[in-house]
Design a protein around this nucleic acid. Structure first.
Length: 428
DNA sequence: TCTGGGGTCCTAGGACCC
DNA sequence: TCTGGGGTCCTAGGACCC
């Protein structure tokens, strides 16, 4: 049976989440900022229509914000993650198999559904149900490959006459949309590839679909060959309903203010390390490799630049924050150079093993401390149940105890409407 | 003055093996 | 003068995604 995929994608997801709890903003332009209130990462329809570009630094559009009364939010990931899981639960109710692809997108397996009902009707039903049950608008693209389903979704968003549902099962409709779509809209074709493809005279998705897969493989890679095949309706990328286990865990932040002091940097890196350890234990993994990196801002060419990273292999894979902290602090000491205005730092864990599933070397003498497992579990339990803010939490001294000058700016944060009792929406 | 965070996969090249 | 062939594994870097 030929496979059928749907891509369901929330419209302007972060902006829609913010609007959901602020009916007064229904017709107003809204933007959501990245961490640290740095740049624009989501825009409502109205903000897009005003020409606000994705990724633009906030300080460059201060005028437009004032002139048009654009409403600005800091990103509120607790809210978005919660709304996301609500949407995904609805989709899981409706479709036989779901692959959660990102915070605001899922692929559905609709193979065989057309025997029961028209695919367009199914798409509309998905759209209506998600809207009714979560309040969030979505678009649906349906096609015989994931790449075409993405493109169908692009069509559904781009052309309002579609009502937000596009079914590309029919080859003639495929052909028409491929002709209209610029090649950079194809899933897997980014900036660099677009430039190289344009140079070869490939400008539309149709041009790419008609290219020779073997030539694309030779000149580019097996990835692009697959894209070409997928654009022709040949499914090469399967639905993966079960999320693959992670291969790395990264924790990094830009600092609210430039860091010049080693002690401050040490606190920041320690904080990221603690957070990475929590994520690691959530994943039920242990890590054997740890990388620390620090850098100055690359945006100011007049300033002295320094960016460097250091990696170490731990004596054995561990999820014990104490050992991660030791390793991270040692690496930071190697990396640190006085006299720079650091803008960002972070740590990355990799080389994962399942706990207890590791073959030590014959002459290894170091072992996990006996209380490690229970201590970390207790730590996680306390911090998970602690009220928000520092009170009631336990932490490592290395994270620092007083005001953290490096921690994020979030000047325009909305309440945690759905995840904190104290911040429930109130209706008078 | 001010520019996000967290991931994945592929490839080329070097080290090393017999 | 003239120095093989075939393979694996690892890593860094580059591309992509949202």
């Amino acid at each position: 049976m030929t496979p059928v995929f749907a891509l369901v994608d929330c419209n302007n997801f972060y902006a829609s989440c913010e609007k959901l709890f602020r009916p007064d903003l229904r017709q107003r332009p809204v933007v959501v900022l990245s961490n640290n209130d740095g740049c624009v990462v989501a825009r409502s329809r109205e903000a897009k229509d005003l020409g606000i570009k994705m990724g633009v630094p906030i300080f460059q559009i201060r005028d437009a914000i004032r002139r048009h009364g654009i409403v600005v939010f800091s990103s509120n990931y607790a809210l978005y993650a919660d709304m996301s899981s609500r949407v995904m639960r609805v989709l899981e109710d409706l479709a036989p198999a779901v692959e959660v692809y990102s915070i605001d997108e899922s692929f559905l397996d609709l193979t065989g559904v057309s025997r029961a009902m028209a695919l367009e009707d199914f798409g509309v039903q998905v759209q209506q149900t998600v809207l009714n049950w979560t309040g969030l608008p979505v678009c649906v693209g349906i096609a015989p490959s994931k790449t075409l389903a993405k493109l169908a979704n692009y069509g559904a968003k781009k052309y309002p006459a579609t009502g937000g549902v596009v079914n590309l099962s029919d080859p003639q409709r495929q052909h028409r949309l491929l002709q209209l779509a610029p090649v950079e809209e194809v899933w897997g074709v980014g900036n660099r590839l677009t430039r190289r493809l344009n140079a070869l005279g490939i400008h539309t998705a149709l041009d790419l679909a008609q290219a020779d897969p073997a030539v694309m493989r030779r000149q580019f890679s097996v990835v692009l060959e697959r894209t070409v095949r997928e654009l022709n309706g040949e499914s090469c990328i399967a639905l993966e309903p079960v999320a693959a286990t992670k291969q790395q865990i990264l924790c990094s932040r830009s600092f609210a203010e430039r860091v010049l002091d080693y002690g401050v940097m040490r606190q920041a890196i320690s904080g990221y390390t603690v957070r990475a350890g929590e994520k690691l234990r959530q994943e039920k993994q242990t890590a054997a490799v740890l990388t620390v990196f620090i850098r100055t801002s690359p945006f100011n060419p007049n300033e002295a630049q320094y960016a460097n990273s250091a990696t170490t292999t731990l004596p054995f894979p561990t999820d014990d924050t104490r050992l991660l902290l030791q390793a991270a602090q040692k690496l930071l000491k190697q990396l640190w150079r006085d006299g720079y205005r650091y803008s960002k730092g972070g740590i990355c864990l990799s080389g994962f093993h399942q706990p207890g599933n590791y073959q030590p070397g014959l002459f290894d003498t170091v072992k996990e401390r006996p209380n490690s497992r229970r201590l970390m579990a207790a730590l996680d339990r306390i911090n998970r149940n602690a009220p928000h803010g520092a009170s009631g939490k336990v932490w490592f001294a290395g994270e620092g105890v007083n005001g953290q000058a490096w921690s994020m700016h979030r000047q325009h944060l909305s309440p945690a409407y759905t995840t904190r009792w104290g911040e429930l929406l109130q209706v008078y």
